[in-house]
Design a protein around this nucleic acid. Structure first.
Lengths: 215, 215
DNA sequence: TAATTACGCTACCGATCCGTTGCGTTATTC
DNA sequence: GAATAACGCAACGGATCGGTAGCGTAATTA
């Protein structure tokens, strides 16, 4: 959301270019992905967006304001999966996760954002509230539905178990730099199910993730 | 390792300050932890280290060279645990991990380094070879010893399972920003053991991590 | 003592940064 | 057509960056 939009738009004069705002925010993330936050200067963003620097300053008061505004757009619109089984829901989550972060450019934006959050408390608070907690809540909801169905026992630390899944994907993407595909996601889900629900078939090795993918 | 140290040290003239090199590298990471890589400028590092900027340039040819040299020091000297049981070894690894990354300043350095690696291939290659792969290899070795003891079955994806442990800790530290303590580490190890070794006691909830801590 | 080399300090260069200003132009409303 | 406001463009000021150079001084060897 840009810094200034009040009540009824003032009607006189040339209207603002409706496409510029999206182009600027998009350009910001493009530069971040390619060269990191410090390289996303106002000049670089303006040039990438195809607008003049003054056009950016008409919408946001400073570079910090632009940065904060850009991250307001990162909320995930994908609805949380609800397949009726814990296994199906977790596979759905893994699929969403890998689709979003498994490859550039979003994997690079994620890595850069982690680095930026370490010394930018405002951005960290916003990103955690608008993105991280939202998605972890999706996982908590999935586990609670499974408990309500009697599929698993209550009382576990669902948040920490969720972080094993999300963390493993994130680790591969931003630390080792390896690509993550659906196969990896399925293997992680199998391991997680074993850790949670003792009554799943424990005789199959984790390679049995193929069975899940085939469904 | 500084950029220039050749054969027998030249003996004439005032010798280099033996403490300066360590002070410079330490100052570099201090600034990175507090303000990120871009803020670790030559002027800032020099001031923090208590040396003149020219003293840095006598040891390294450029800021990039300093940055690369600094990360050569990040290898972990802690020997991998070998307690005789998979459970003990995993708890030892979790303890090392949490001791290193569970709190500032190293947690902040880790986050900043993740962001920097995304657009600095030289640093990424060095850090992955010197730090990441080394520590993942410690975990692989632990799993292979457990297989050799007959404690667990062979054939699993040990690397991916290791990444669930390391990734969960890393996720908490650099994404959610929560502190990680020994309790969390023990809970993670219990979950991992359940995922790997079906014959552990599955009736205890994950909260049973207290039992492990008491040992 | 003389030669040599590291040191801290200051100053500088060219480049780039954020943010502002002014101006001619374009699009819209009254 | 007059008034209004956004647009692109160019320029600027003050600050900071990486990296270099000069100078007086401190520490060592021959």
């Amino acid at each position: 959301m840009s810094a200034d939009e009040r009540d009824g738009a003032p009607k006189r004069g040339r209207p603002r270019d409706a496409t510029a705002e999206a182009a600027i925010l998009r350009a910001f993330f493009e530069v971040v992905a390619e060269q990191g936050y410090p390289a996303a200067t106002m000049d670089a963003v303006a040039e990438r967006a195809g607008v003049a620097k003054t056009t950016i300053y008409r919408r946001w008061a400073s570079r910090d304001a632009l940065m904060i505004a850009a991250h307001g757009l990162l909320t995930d619109e994908n609805p949380p999966p609800d397949t009726g089984t814990l296994r199906g829901d977790l596979l759905g989550i893994a699929s969403l996760l890998i689709e979003n972060l498994g490859r550039p450019p979003l994997s690079l934006v994620a890595a850069a954002t982690i680095g930026e959050m370490a010394h930018n408390p405002d951005l960290a608070a916003l990103f955690r509230a608008a993105v991280v907690e939202q998605r972890l809540a999706m996982l908590t909801e999935i586990f609670e539905r499974a408990v309500a169905r009697g599929e698993i026992a209550p009382g576990e630390d669902w948040r920490l178990l969720s972080e094993m899944l999300v963390g493993a994907v994130m680790f591969r993407v931003v630390v080792t730099g390896e690509r993550v595909d659906a196969r990896v996601g399925a293997t992680l889900v199998v391991a997680l199910l074993r850790a949670i629900a003792p009554h799943v078939d424990l005789t199959r090795p984790l390679g049995g993730a193929d069975d899940l993918l085939a469904e």
